[in-house]
């Protein structure tokens, strides 16, 4: 009896909830907050990391340790990353050297090291599960750590905080223009852009190989 009553009560509440949800969907303007589907045109730009113009970032962890990763913008532009290749431990990398490879299906992009130094640690979790980059490219999605060389020199090329924010806005504009200039493989992307809709997410999926190389040259070097 009690069990039946409790379950019936719960099912009633659930039904009421579904009805309320269904009705609210007709007036989505009633809840003026960020919905997850709209998040694609939002990029995370933490104020504590330095951004390289080629969309990688560096964060000081201590005197001899800098964490490196790729930024939210590129992560969203590429779409789901299936595979990451990193430099090996002990390898010396130079700022601007393309040392990170990311795969999206059969597409491949190379990204550069944001600063110079010697690699001493890799993020094995990301190698196992590149989806961590999408979850948060600045925390669990970091790529490798290095011992920096000529740090001050390296940093002069990077931007941080407000500068980084205004840089990423120009990047987004540039990216839109870039997309507009390419022959798109897919009609929907163009349509979305005309709508003033999602400008970034997964866009690369619609580019052909030559456009992809152009993108690499113009944005990742």
């Amino acid at each position: 009896m009690v069990a039946l009553a409790v379950i019936l009560f719960a099912i009633t509440l659930l039904t009421i909830d579904l009805v309320i949800q269904a009705r609210q969907k007709k007036y989505p303007l009633m809840s003026p907050s960020l919905r997850s589907s709209e998040k694609a045109d939002v990029v995370r730009m933490p104020k504590s990391v330095f951004f390289h113009p080629a969309h990688t970032w560096a964060r000081m962890e201590g005197a001899d340790s800098v964490t490196v990763g790729l930024d939210d913008f590129i992560q969203k532009a590429v779409g789901a990353i299936d595979k990451v290749y990193l430099p090996m431990i002990g390898q010396k990398v130079k700022q601007g050297d393309p040392v990170i490879t990311v795969h999206h299906g059969d597409r491949k992009l190379m990204l550069v090291a944001p600063i110079s130094g010697t690699v001493f640690a890799l993020n094995n979790d990301v190698l196992d599960n590149p989806a961590l980059i999408a979850a948060n490219p600045y925390e669990e999605g970091w790529l490798f750590r290095l011992e920096p060389e000529l740090l001050a020199n390296s940093l002069s090329l990077l931007t941080i905080a407000e500068n980084a924010v205004s840089w990423i806005r120009t990047e987004a504009m540039r990216f839109r223009e870039f997309l507009a200039g390419q022959t798109l493989q897919h009609a929907t992307l163009g349509a979305t852009m005309l709508d003033g809709g999602v400008p970034v997410a997964n866009s690369l999926e619609y580019l052909d190989d030559s456009s992809l190389r152009k993108f690499e040259d113009q944005f990742l070097r």
Partner: peptide, 17 residues
Amino acid sequence: RDEVRAFEQKMNGKSNV
């Protein structure tokens, strides 16, 4: 397993990049 993976990564690292 993570440690082993790290070691393998170190070994294969050069060929991947």
